[in-house]
């Protein structure tokens, strides 16, 4: 297998997903199959080929630095799962 269930659990942790051991095991064959397929790319000689991250050649997109209105505090908080005094509320971070 190209990937172990321990590696999947590690990657899931990096991605802030909570998998149990059974879920990780069931992903092993699927992710392995995809990674093996993706290895097809290794057949391609890419020495001296620059990577493309943007299909259209655009120079840096600058805009004028002008003041404008931003989202009002109340609108920004409208969808917050928990809010208080104009702030987003999160669980305690520092013990």
């Amino acid at each position: 297998m190209k990937i172990t269930s321990e590696e999947i659990l590690h990657v899931a942790d990096l991605a802030r997903l909570e998998l149990d051991a059974a879920a990780a095991r069931s992903l092993v064959p699927q992710i392995t199959e995809i990674l093996e397929y993706v290895d097809l790319m290794q057949q391609v000689d890419t020495s001296d080929v620059p990577p493309t991250t943007h299909a259209i050649s655009l120079k840096n997109a600058f805009r004028d630095d002008v003041c404008r209105t931003h989202l009002e505090n109340a609108a920004a908080l409208e969808n917050a799962p928990e809010k208080d005094a104009g702030c987003f509320v999160v669980p305690r971070i520092i013990g």
Binding site: A15, T46, V49, P50
Partner: peptide, 24 residues
Amino acid sequence: ILGTYALSAGYYDAYYRKASQVRT
């Protein structure tokens, strides 16, 4: 999970960079 793996330490060159070169 697939994307996080492809971008994680040690795998970036083999996956994301390679794919971006094939894209070219």
